[in-house]
Design a protein around this nucleic acid. Structure first.
Length: 420
RNA sequence: CGGGGCGUAGUGUAACGGCAGCACGAGACGUUUGGGACGUUUUAGUCCGAGUUCAAAUCUCGGCGCCCCGACCA
């Protein structure tokens, strides 16, 4: 991508009244645009990050047998009445609207009900099980108060997966597999060492659900962390019984703030019975399907990474989800001839990087000072910065600097490209 | 939903009830060129609606919007 073609612009001033670091930097860097409180548009750079995160999750979900689908944002009232979750008294985040005919519809804040209902068309026999489906969906939630930039919005992207299994053993095996897959996701995204499996309330379905909590002070949850056992307990279920059940004592637990980036949940047979999802077993008996639900907040994850990794100069992306791998910067020169030489070399490097399949943002803007280009580069936070200038060309080298490191070093372009 | 703060050019900020100013951005011209360059010049604004007043960005009321704390949060 040529930066001269990128329609977004960086901003020097912080957006007014925006305290949240993720909103501040992502807006200044041109990654997102605020449409209204808690509702953000994703611009070219921001969308690339979202897609990178999705792709990592997609690979891991496919790896454990997930099949990707996409459900609808408009949902039927009757389905949610069957599980008693239509009434605003029970679910207070609904956006609702009416068809011209007067029929009420809801905007999806979750998709267990419609997916489970849909499964009645495809799932009849024990031979059909298990089934694992997932989607990346924009969820709409009428939050009383949006806050913390993209960490808690009214419209956000979530990966939700659902498992349909025949029995408890089959369910538990998959459930454990999801835990492993989630750990791999957070590892690949760069949050592995600070994201912990957390025991949380299972509601009326099971004793526990499991959350994946990433340690950060901007998190909304208080959890009790056992570092050596690599597990945590959500404040909401911290009781002496739970601690002894998990084999930990209060002294070993550290009270920390964290953000819930993932959540997995066992619905057991409850929802299948409510919605009428049954299968025939080998003996021809009708049995309810076991349902599990597994979420990861994509955009929340993006905000969490910003909060944790950004520094005073701007964003810092891990290579796995950066919008581009390399930020190639062409610096202007003293005279026309030198300028042409620098341009020619930079264009050549750009083409070579692209030919290698390396994603590169090329700052080819002619009328910008070096200082401005460097400041923009720091703000945007691409992992590798490569500078081409009259000075470097004189020595037949380039300057390479990693965003997360302080010192730049010199290298030949050929050596650099091999190293990537 | 309870409480607090705040709405002024595209962005960020000033202005005692009395001429709406500054910076950035954007446009033009010239000079610059390794950490947000310089000069000249152009551009563009008081959230909406009532009220008080000779006079309202400023005071009052209502609406809308934004931020924060709390509550809420499969």
């Amino acid at each position: 991508m040529r930066q001269s073609q990128l329609f977004t612009k960086t901003r020097k001033d912080a957006p007014k009244g925006e305290v949240s670091k993720n909103a501040d930097l992502l807006i200044r860097g041109g990654f997102i645009h605020k449409e209204m409180a808690g509702v953000y548009a994703y611009l070219p750079l921001g969308l690339r990050v979202v897609e990178k995160i999705k792709q990592i999750i997609r690979e891991e979900m496919n790896n454990i047998g997930g099949q990707e689908i996409i459900m609808t944002a408009l949902q039927r009232k009757e389905l949610w009445e069957m599980t008693d979750r239509w009434d605003d008294a029970n679910v207070d985040v609904w956006f609702k609207a009416m068809l011209k005919s007067g029929t009420e519809v809801g905007f999806g804040w979750s998709h267990e009900e419609p997916i489970t209902d849909m499964m009645k068309h495809y799932l009849n026999s024990y031979r059909d099980l298990p089934i694992y489906v997932y989607q990346f969906q924009t969820k709409l939630r009428n939050e009383l108060r949006a806050k913390s930039g993209i960490m808690r919005g009214r419209e956000f992207v979530m990966k939700d997966m659902y498992s349909y299994t025949a029995n408890t053993e089959m369910h538990e095996k998959f459930y454990a597999g999801v835990i492993d897959a989630y750990h791999r996701v957070f590892e690949r995204i760069g949050l592995g060492d600070r994201t912990f499996l957390t025991f949380a309330s299972g509601g009326s379905f099971t004793q526990f659900s499991h959350e994946f909590q990433t340690l950060t002070d901007v998190g909304e949850d208080t959890i009790y962390l056992h570092r050596t056992k690599k597990l945590a307990i959500n404040q909401e279920v911290l009781t002496p019984e739970v601690m002894s059940q998990l084999g930990v004592s209060r002294e070993d637990l550290e009270e920390v703030r964290a953000v819930e980036v993932g959540n997995i949940f066992n619905f057991g047979e409850v929802k299948s019975k409510q919605l009428g999802l049954f299968y025939r077993d080998e003996q021809g008996n009708e049995k309810p399907v076991i349902l599990g639900s597994y979420g990861i907040g994509i955009t929340r994850l993006m905000g969490t990474i910003v909060e944790i990794l950004a520094d005073e100069k701007g964003l810092v992306w891990p290579e796995s989800i950066a919008p581009h791998k390399v930020h190639l910067i062409e610096l202007s020169a003293k005279d026309d001839a030198a300028r042409q030489t620098v341009k020619k070399a930079a264009e050549e490097y750009y083409a070579k990087l692209l030919a290698r399949g390396i994603e590169v943002l090329y700052d080819d803007r002619a009328d910008r000072s070096a200082g401005e280009k460097f400041a923009d580069s720091d703000l945007i936070g691409i992992p590798w910065r490569v500078v081409v200038s009259e000075k470097t060309l004189a020595q037949k080298i380039i300057e390479v600097k990693k965003r997360a490191e302080k010192e730049a070093r010199l290298s030949t372009f050929e050596h650099f490209i091999e190293e990537l």
